[in-house]
Design a protein around this nucleic acid. Structure first.
Lengths: 328, 328
DNA sequence: TTGAAAGCGCTAACAG
DNA sequence: CTGTTAGCGCTTTCAA
């Protein structure tokens, strides 16, 4: 095993293989012509020297960046302290690794969307994944990144989107509740500005209207805390509520916690549903009825899309399945 | 607002400011001399052009990489599908962002630690954070990365470590159990090869020995599933167990789930404790007694250490506090 | 099929 | 204090 004190450069490889740097480059990069012999010799030389191309040099000559930016929209930097964002990042980083690309996260203030261009002006950024985005933000994606940007959530004419079928999942949940005899169904929504979360609200409203039932909505934000507060608010405003549909598992757990603390039986008195099917959803008491949400798969798909840079559909919707457990 | 179609280069800035490229470089990079006038003019020019330095070019000339590698040791690639890893990644990425550095994750097989050098041979890698590492792996950190590598967990003579005080936290937990009258205390450990997790086991053993009590150990792996299985194993081997100390909150939740399914009261019959204090620990039923584990803080500290590259202590231990709730 | 040469954007001596 | 001059490692015409 050759100990690489100073990491080998392409020149080292070329020299060892007895060819010119250009030839070595062609072989390594895999484009351009090269005789089988040359190919062979370069390959073995590279192998022996443990040669790994320098991504910085490559990026420099190609004028392409060296990392993928995950931009998360929100009211404050705390949006980055979120397991959802963490998962997106983790999945993205795994997809990027073989490409020699790194990942960065940053936050884009909802009240100052133009901050996005500051981030994308960095030539180090080669691709962009938008999270929790808005139509307004989508407009600000620079030309340079067209075809190298994707949104997890809503898309636009120029930025394709990858997302889950919130609407379908919410329908399945509400139907499940309805067929279980629930009629006074409330919902803890997501942040109103978050278009993709509104698809759940729309689905809920549609179903309730079709059933001739009134809606009961409380604004939420995916967090446990909002779940607790929302539970209390729901019971205060509509004491006869018999089901609460929460926008996320965390919120649902907050709801259940509050309900239990107030002596309300779940699902006896009030059924509660979540959304996401986090690993812990199966072991809570009661185990959570929820809808699956393959965040990692979605993020991987998004990352693959921007990296492969190929003609992808403008809108990819991942299915979500109802996971029926004990809470509803 | 100047629309930057072709992102501005340092040359553009220099030209606009009417100085040489070197002067512009000095001003932007903030080192070397420059007259106040020159400084001023370069600054404004850069501002107007929306200039952002090209990290690839910088990295190339400095011979430094362009991303930070988070290497996670484990038996298979699935170790990357872990919220702990995700959190480390998230925190790291946030620290890296202002430096124009990206983050990559990769997995190092426990049975083929030499795979690590493949990863670190990449000159794109400028710094290294090791997660769940072993002494053997630490030896393989190349010279090039000395001073730019840190381990979250155990350290070595050449690689500093940042970690939590597992031992202290476990002591606090076991003491809490003891003072609550528990005497037949079992532990679901971490993977035996994971040195830092063994500190918990050592603390447990020490305390039990001091109290003249026998130990009851079952090997675990942080997961919910192992928790379920371990709970069953504990009760099968030692039916009179009155407390189970789990290595993680997820495991504790698995333990509780199994216990409850088997008709065992928690904490009535058996007290259960976790470790980590995940956000959901407060809303489970019963709410989990656990020890805090500021993963993000730890990861941020680790990332800052390698990036600032300054003389840091070889071992930084974050405190862990007992969080007493209902499960024990 | 291959090599020579130019240049990506930036920094760092080294003279002025 | 400032400009000139070399590269950093790689890809890519362009000739040979």
């Amino acid at each position: 095993m050759t100990t690489a004190r100073r990491p080998a450069t392409l020149d080292d490889v070329a020299r060892a293989a007895g060819v010119s740097r250009s030839t070595a480059s062609r072989v390594i990069a895999g484009n351009g012509f090269a005789s089988p012999t040359a190919r062979e010799r370069v390959r073995t030389a590279a192998d022996e020297l443990g040669y790994v191309p320098n991504p910085a040099a490559r990026a420099l000559v190609h004028g392409t960046g060296v990392r993928l930016l995950v931009a998360v929209a929100g009211n404050d930097p705390a949006v980055l302290d979120d397991s959802y964002v963490d998962q997106v990042l983790g999945a993205t980083a795994r997809v990027c690794a073989p490409y020699g690309l790194g990942v960065t996260v940053d936050w884009v203030p909802l009240h100052a969307p133009e901050r996005l261009v500051r981030l994308t002006d960095d030539r180090g950024v080669t691709s962009l994944i938008l999270v929790n985005t808005t139509a307004e933000l989508l407009e600000l994606v620079p030309r340079r990144l067209r075809g190298r940007a994707v949104s997890i959530g809503v898309g636009s004419a120029t930025v394709p989107s990858v997302d889950i079928d919130n609407g379908g999942a919410t329908e399945a949940i509400v139907r499940h509740l309805y067929s279980g005899g629930r009629r006074r169904i409330a919902m803890v929504t997501g942040p109103p500005w978050l278009t993709c979360a509104n698809r759940s609200v729309d689905a809920y409203r549609g179903l309730m209207r079709d059933a001739g039932l009134p809606t009961r909505e409380v604004v939420g934000d995916f967090s446990v805390e909002r779940g607790r507060a929302a539970a209390r608010e729901v019971l205060r405003r509509w004491p006869d509520t018999d089901a609460i549909v929460a926008i996320s598992d965390a919120t649902a757990l907050g709801v259940i916690g509050r309900l239990r603390a107030d002596g309300v039986q779940v699902p006896g008195d009030v059924a509660v549903t979540g959304f996401d099917d986090i690993p812990l959803a199966a072991v809570t008491a009661p185990a959570l009825t929820t809808a699956s949400h393959p965040v990692r798969q979605i993020a991987s798909a998004a990352a693959t899309m921007v990296l492969e840079h190929r003609h992808a559909p403008m809108c990819t919707r991942f299915p979500s399945a109802l996971v029926s457990r004990d809470s509803a």
